[in-house]
């Protein structure tokens, strides 16, 4: 696929504590698609998400990140967000005394009660029961993840990075999350799913496989699924890819 990418990553290198956590990554994310980045624990997936978003501990990278064709390397997280990208954390933050409603409205495109009701229903949380609760430790892990997703639906972003949207989520809620994905896509968002679950990968239109901070292969979901199932799941040397890992980006 060679449509115009909404997000482009060029030769991204990120070193932390003397190690290359991201190792010369180049990736293109076509508009209006659901992309998945899959890989084992410690592959660098969350780090990639944080670098794209421009979080303060992840901004000292080499290479370049382009959003809508323009480099965003100099921009802090809030300015990147105002250009239309956002992210849902693997482990979302909790806030004492901040209501679910205020949290959702903090970035909402349309700031109304109606928005809060709609997005909570979309993630399967009853607005009457949840709107007034605090986004604090009294929410379960799965509820907290769903509130995070609701806040993102309210933003109507151009690009959403979702770090492990299925972690801590039961089957019922997972179906809601997949519906929300479809909704985002139908409403013009580009989605970047970060996962090590094949079930999540299968929701994507296009996939990338990462290992040890490197891009191992990219392409159609079926190709990535097969590669992951055959080579990664039985792998006895995670995050030590062979030097001849062969299939690189693009060769579908």
């Amino acid at each position: 696929m060679r449509e115009k990418a909404i997000l482009e990553i060029r030769n991204l290198v990120l070193r932390m504590s003397g190690r290359s956590i991201l190792d010369d990554l180049s990736m293109g994310f076509a508009r209006h698609r659901v992309h998945a980045v899959i890989g084992p624990n410690g592959a660098g997936k969350s780090t990639l998400a944080c670098a794209i978003m421009g979080l303060s501990d992840y901004r000292r990278y080499e290479g370049s990140i382009l959003f809508k064709g323009e480099p965003v390397d100099e921009l802090p997280v809030d300015q990147r967000a105002r250009r239309g990208m956002t992210m849902a954390w693997q482990e979302p933050a909790r806030y004492e005394g901040l209501s679910v409603e205020r949290f959702i409205l903090s970035g909402a495109a349309k700031k109304s009660k109606e928005t809060v009701r709609e997005v909570l229903e979309q993630v399967g949380l009853d607005p009457a029961r949840y709107g007034g609760r605090a986004v604090d430790k009294t929410l379960s892990g799965g509820e907290r993840k769903r509130v995070e997703l609701a806040s993102i639906l309210a933003m109507r972003p151009l690009l959403v990075i979702m770090d492990e949207p299925d972690s801590g989520i039961d089957m019922d809620a997972l179906a809601r999350i997949f519906d929300a994905l479809e909704f985002l896509k139908a409403n013009g968002s580009t989605v970047l799913l970060i996962t090590h679950s094949v079930a999540v990968l299968e929701r994507a239109d296009h996939g990338f496989l990462m290992c040890d901070g490197k891009l191992i292969c990219e392409g159609g979901v079926e190709k990535i699924r097969r590669y992951y199932a055959n080579k990664c799941m039985p792998c006895d040397h995670p995050n030590e890819p062979h030097s001849d890992f062969g299939e690189r980006a693009g060769d579908e």
Binding site: S56, A93, S106, G107, M155
Partner: peptide
Amino acid sequence: KQLETLMAHGL
């Protein structure tokens, strides 16, 4: 993390 979550909402 609290701060950057809200900043990722555009605040």
